[in-house]
């Protein structure tokens, strides 16, 4: 799919903007829940791949059709790897650290199904960033 001009690109971006709003503020109307998991070398070295597989299994087992797991890069919290970010529409996205394979079930059950915080693993996003999603 070749993009031939800036306006085509901007059109395409606008059609995609929902997912980024979900991740940045949770302010979307969509009902898809996203779990972002840090899958850079550092995350993988701490077991992110196993966590990833386990999350998928749990989601399938619980038949959660509106939950997507997406692998992303590193957030920089090496001391808390593997890290995941749970983005629930209408809620502020939250970060969790040290979500190893055996924490995956608990994460889904507590945070997504029961909608409570997973104490002990909560990580506060401690940075601001250059805005790029606004024009």
């Amino acid at each position: 799919m070749k993009i031939n001009s800036r306006s085509e690109l901007v059109e395409l971006r606008k059609s995609l903007s929902n997912k980024i709003t979900l991740r940045e503020s949770g302010a979307t109307t969509d009902d898809t829940i996203e779990i972002l998991i840090g899958m850079a070398t550092c995350g993988i070295a701490s077991g992110a791949k196993d966590t990833y597989n386990e999350l998928i299994t749990v989601i399938e087992d619980l038949n959660l059709t509106n939950v997507k797991v997406i692998s992303v890069g590193c957030l920089g919290y090496c001391y808390m790897e593997p890290t995941v970010q749970v983005c629930i529409p209408g809620e502020e996205p939250l970060l969790y650290g040290k979500i190893t394979k055996d924490k995956a079930f608990e994460l889904i059950e507590k945070v997504i199904v029961e909608r409570v915080y997973l104490s002990d693993n909560l990580l506060i996003r401690s940075f601001d960033k250059a805005g790029a999603s606004n024009e």
Partner: peptide, 23 residues
């Protein structure tokens, strides 16, 4: 304050549409 790392951990690096979504 993240400029260089602005998208790290936010987008799926293997999916160009996610990069397009952040301009």
């Amino acid at each position: 304050f993240r400029i260089a790392l602005r998208n790290c951990g936010l987008i799926n690096p293997e999916d160009i549409t996610e990069y397009i979504a952040v301009r």
